[in-house]
């Protein structure tokens, strides 16, 4: 636990960006990045769930450790994440119907987003404390949002550009993402302790 909070935020946002460097959450990154608005909505929802899941799974992991059941981590964590997503969905439906409507389809999709399970597993492996876990979750989610919004804004233009027949659609999107990842490589080596 030598890393400072600022260091965690910086690395989750830029140098170790969840999508472009660590490859967590590629499915929604590719699937929900056709428009900037929806990309932003997805990003915010994921950030929220990631922070909440980090906090909840920190507690759950303590219980698992006390019972020496740590080998059940994967099963338990995915259940916790699925139920958090469900609760968030029900809460938003009652409390903030406008936001619920805007997010709609994306909410249930978050369960199978590897970024959420990924961040929880990384928290446990790195042995982060409660505060560090939550910060890592939230910052990771913001990094996800940053990457998906940038990518969506590039993609809106790329879709209209001409390219070889066999590259149309998904392949050109992957190449675009590759160039974006190349730009993010420039951040590597950036460190604050």
């Amino acid at each position: 636990m030598t890393e400072s909070i600022l260091g965690i935020i910086l690395s989750a946002l830029l140098t170790e960006n969840f999508i472009l460097v660590k490859f967590y959450g590629i499915c929604p990154f590719m699937g929900v990045s056709k428009k900037i608005d929806t990309a932003l909505g997805m990003g915010m929802a994921v950030t929220f769930v990631m922070a909440l899941a980090s906090a909840a799974c920190y507690g759950v992991d303590l219980i698992l450790q006390a019972l020496s059941l740590t080998y059940m981590q994967t099963v338990v964590f995915i259940l916790v994440i699925a139920s958090i997503v469900q609760v968030v969905e029900m809460f938003l439906k009652k409390a903030v119907p406008a936001l619920y409507k805007a997010l709609g389809v994306f909410l249930p999709l978050i369960t199978t987003n590897c970024a959420v399970l990924g961040v929880v597993l990384v928290n446990v492996q790195e042995g982060y404390g409660f505060l560090h876990s939550v910060v890592n979750g939230a910052a990771g989610g913001l990094g996800f949002t940053l990457a998906i919004v940038l990518f969506a804004s590039v993609r809106e233009r790329v879709d209209k550009a001409e390219c070889p027949e066999c590259f149309k659609g998904f392949p050109i999107a992957l190449i675009t993402a590759g160039l974006l990842a190349l730009a993010f490589m420039g951040f590597s080596g950036l460190k604050i302790f």
Binding site: L174, I175, G178, A181, M185
Partner: peptide
Amino acid sequence: PVGGFLVLGCVIAGSQFLMK
């Protein structure tokens, strides 16, 4: 990471080309 995106993009493009 960069290479992952680029290579997979080219591989999928290649497979679409062959399929067509």
